[in-house]
């Protein structure tokens, strides 16, 4: 196993853990944490492919990862504001109980 494969496997494991948490947990905040883990797994892929790619002087992977981190920060702020807003209206962060739109 080469090092690039090791980094990609770490990234895949991180993505799978985040996906499992986002799909299986009830609490909306934990679901957001899972989404953050998945975004970080994608960032690790960018950095690993930049480092092992044929042209690391171009800095494309690093800059893409920096932009991705910035966008993830915006996503976290809006997502947590939504969770707080839902909590204010429904008095719960349990996703199984937020079902007033269910047909």
């Amino acid at each position: 196993m080469t090092s690039l494969q090791a980094y990609l496997l770490l990234s895949a494991l991180l993505f799978a853990i985040g996906l499992a948490g986002a799909l299986a947990r009830r609490n909306a905040i934990i679901v957001l944490i899972g989404i953050e883990l998945m975004l970080n797994a994608a960032n690790l892929n960018f950095i690993a492919f930049w480092r092992f790619g044929p042209n690391p002087e171009a800095l494309t992977g690093v800059l893409f990862a920096i932009f991705s981190i910035g966008i993830a920060a915006a996503e976290a702020a809006v997502g947590l504001a939504l969770v707080i807003s839902i909590y204010r209206h429904q008095k719960t962060t349990d996703l199984g109980q937020v079902d007033s739109l269910k047909g």
Binding site: F15, A22, A24
Partner: peptide, 23 residues
């Protein structure tokens, strides 16, 4: 209350399948 949703088994299965394809 339980911390896992009622369909957690499906979620875990999907995650394992996604990891298997990636690996």
């Amino acid at each position: 209350q339980p911390i896992l949703s009622s369909t957690w088994l499906v979620g875990a299965g999907v995650a394992v399948a996604v990891f298997a394809v990636f690996a």
